[in-house]
Structures are given as structure tokens and as C-alpha cells.
Design a binder for these strands. Structure first.
Lengths: 162, 162
DNA sequence: CCTTGACTTCGAGTGCACTCTAAGCCGTAG
DNA sequence: CTACGGCTTAGAGTGCACTCGAAGTCAAGG
């Protein structure tokens, strides 16, 4: 598997997942997940445009995420945003949570726990586990909808009303 | 598997899917899908409150769906809505499409095709097939997000920032 | 007869997650 | 020097999918 430098992290995740079994719990090596989070060779400071290109999140949305407190971003001498590897990792993690339908409100809550330090680790863990269950329920629902649509396609050919 | 009369169709679908293999294409018998669409014994006319209870869609939302043209509903002598089995089936189908993240705009388009009659069958079929692909992509993305979150849970225990 | 409660309509309001605008600053290429 | 493109800010605007409110109608129960 090659994870090109020109892909967004979402595309990288897709190409990664495409190579895995369709089981609900694909195994990811630490190496793979790390390469997903922080593409090798891009560990230094990045301007907003590069973060946007890398993550597939628009510059507008990146500023929005910072404004509502999801990411802390430093500035250069001219006042422009400079994303270090930690900020980039945060953006990627937030997009991963968004992709799994976690609301901005819940992500803010989680980030708030992170800010409070390691005393909140148990709560964070419980939070992620609860979200994991929500994802699994969503997967079941989606599979059900897919089955019904597949059934409609194969049996009715789109003909039978409704 | 028992599909109780007191469950919403979404709950019915879930209990149905829970009994199936976790493969992406569970097989559904015609009998099962039909029982899902139209619970036996409820083939006659229903007031809005019963449709709401049966489908899990609020009366407000049912009126909204009618207003934007997703469902046609007859009235009784007093002007109250009367859902026949066809209207109920339409509501259920719409909720199924909504559950699979199809936008209201796209559902309206599909219903528009249905209204135009059988000449649009090929287009409807293509539409459903395209949507099927969107669902499958969504399933892959969701699985990827699940994998990353699982990885975070098991490896970092919620501790490692971010 | 009168009240109750479920229904009706129309239009306005809500919450979410962006998404864009406008006005202005800064560093480099020509 | 100047024009340009990309960045900055605060705040307003957008689109979606509901969701609710207000005012009124109607049938059944006490």
C-alpha cells in the first residue's frame, strides 16, 4: 500500500481501509495509524493552506475550528497561523471524529477533557467507548438501509411503488 | 425473530439486522422486507398519531414531509389526515432513505421520478444504485473511523494527546 | 351545553456546521 | 514603487431538516 503525499488524510484513510478485510474491527498496526496521523516528512510547521490541502478541511473551516476552541494554533511574526505537528494531529483527529458523526458539541467536550489534563483520562476513555457504540449502531442501521435498498434494486428494479 | 407491533419500523429494522450476519449484504427474504414495510394487520387507514407511533417520525415531521411533497395523504370528512397503506409504505421508505443519509432534495427528486410513472424506471434504478455506492463508501469511512477510535482506546487508553 | 384534546393551517423559529464577506495587512515579483 | 496573492479579523449569511407557535375546527364525553 502506498500512501501518497498528495492525498488528504481522508483519502489516505480510505485507501487504507480499502486494503483491509470488511470485518467491523480491522486491525491497524501502530505504524499505519501513525503514518495516517502524521505523514512522514511533514513534522514541521505548516501554513493554513498546506494544512487545508493535507487534511481536506477548508481554510475557512480550520479557522472556525480554532475559533470554537478545538485546536490551538500559534502565529508567526506577521500574525499568520503556524500549525505544528501537534496542531495538525489535532485537526486530523477532529476530522476523524466528525467523520464518525460526532457533533461539534461533543468534540468540544472531549477536547475540554484533554485540556484538563490526565485526571480526565477515565472519563475520556468512557466517552470514546460510548461513541464507539454509537458508531457500531450507526453501522448496523446503515447496513439495514443498504439491505433494503439492495432488495428494492434487485427485486423491484426500482419499478414497484413507492 | 419476533417483530412486535409496538416497535417503530426503525426498531424493527434494527432487530432484523441484529439477527443477520455482519456481512455487507445480508439477505432479506421478501417476507421479511414486506413485514418490515407493512406490519401485518395494519393495512387500513390510520390517523397521523398512529403513523407517528408506528414509524417513529413525529407528527410535525409527517406534516412537513407531506408539505414538501414526499407523501400524498388523503383527508377524512373533517379534514384530518388519513394514511392508507400506500402512504404508510411511502413514509417508511422515505425514513429508510433518510436513515441512509440521502438528502431531502434527493429524496424529492426520486419521488418526482416515481410520480412521473414507469418511464422513469431506468433512471430510478440508476439513482438507487448510485446511492447504494454512496452508502457503501460511507460504511467504509465509518469502519475506518471506528478502527482509529478503537486503536486509540486500546493503545492509548484515551491518554495520549490529542 | 361545555370542555377537552387531537387535529388543522400557515408561517416563523431553531440548531447545526459551516461558509462567506469586507476591510485591511504583509512579503515578494516585476 | 507597486501590484498581487495570500493571509488576518469580526461578524454576517447559508442551507438543511426539522420543530414549534398561534389561532382555529371538530367530535366525543361529562
Amino acid at each position: 500500500m502506498t500512501l501518497s503525499m498528495t492525498m488528504t488524510t481522508t483519502e489516505r484513510l480510505r485507501s487504507l481501509v480499502d486494503t483491509l478485510e470488511a470485518s467491523e474491527l480491522p486491525e491497524l498496526s501502530e505504524e499505519l495509524v501513525c503514518s495516517l496521523n502524521l505523514p512522514a516528512g511533514l513534522v514541521e510547521e505548516l501554513p493554513i493552506a498546506e494544512v487545508a490541502a493535507l487534511t481536506g478541511v477548508s481554510a475557512h473551516t480550520l479557522r472556525y475550528y480554532e475559533r470554537i476552541g478545538l485546536v490551538d494554533v500559534a502565529r508567526d511574526a506577521a500574525g499568520r497561523r503556524v500549525y505544528d505537528s501537534q496542531a495538525l494531529a489535532r485537526v486530523v483527529f477532529v476530522t476523524r471524529l466528525r467523520m464518525s458523526d460526532m457533533s461539534i458539541r461533543d468534540i468540544s467536550h472531549y477536547i475540554g477533557l484533554v485540556r484538563q489534563g490526565s485526571s480526565t483520562v477515565p472519563e475520556r476513555l468512557a466517552f470514546l467507548q460510548a461513541h464507539r457504540e454509537a458508531i457500531r449502531q450507526r453501522l448496523r442501521d446503515l447496513n439495514g438501509a443498504l439491505a433494503v435498498i439492495d432488495y428494492k434494486i434487485t427485486t423491484y428494479g426500482g419499478y414497484c411503488e413507492p
